[in-house]
C-alpha cells in the first residue's frame, strides 16, 4: 500500500453532535485512520466544540452516546486535539468542560496548523 509514507492529516470538526450524523461518522473515520500510522490531528471549531462537551446522556433520544470514543482516542495514539478558543468563548464553555485533554488555541493558530497539513478532511 503506502508503506513508509507519513502524511499530516487533520480532521476538522465544525458540527454539533446528534443533530446530524457528521460528528459520529467523522469519529469513525478517525478510528480507521489510526491503523494507517499517519500524523493525525483533530480540530474542533465552531459548533464542533460541542462534540467534546462533557456529560452527553443520550438515553432519551435513543441514539448511541459516542462520547466515550473520544476518550479512547489516546489508546490509538491520537492525542493532538485542538479546540478553537473563540468557539469555546462564544458558547460559554471552557477547557474544563471538555471530556478529554485538549489544546485550546485561536482560530488563527489553527489556521496556521492547517497550512502545514498534507490533507484536510472536513465533515
Amino acid at each position: 500500500m503506502s508503506e513508509g509514507q507519513v502524511k499530516k492529516i487533520m480532521y476538522v470538526n465544525r458540527k454539533a453532535p446528534y443533530g446530524t450524523i457528521y460528528a459520529l461518522e467523522s469519529l469513525e473515520v478517525v478510528l480507521i485512520a489510526a491503523a494507517f500510522d499517519q500524523d493525525v490531528s483533530l480540530a474542533f471549531m465552531d459548533d464542533g466544540v460541542y462534540q467534546l462537551k462533557k456529560g452527553h446522556q443520550t438515553k432519551g433520544i435513543e441514539v448511541k452516546n459516542f462520547q466515550p470514543t473520544y476518550r479512547a482516542l489516546d489508546d490509538y495514539d491520537i492525542n493532538k486535539l485542538y479546540v478553537e478558543k473563540e468557539a469555546l468563548e462564544a458558547r460559554g464553555l471552557s477547557e474544563e468542560d471538555m471530556c478529554v485533554p485538549v489544546e485550546v488555541m485561536s482560530a488563527a493558530e489553527i489556521g496556521k496548523l492547517m497550512e502545514e497539513q498534507d490533507v484536510l478532511l472536513s465533515f
Binding site: S2, Q5, K7, I9, V29, I32, A33, F36, Q38, V119
Partner: peptide
C-alpha cells in the same frame, strides 16, 4: 468498501 479506502486515497 471500507473507510480504509478513504484514508488510503488521502495518502496516495
Amino acid at each position: 468498501s471500507g473507510l480504509g479506502q478513504l484514508i488510503e486515497s488521502s495518502i496516495q
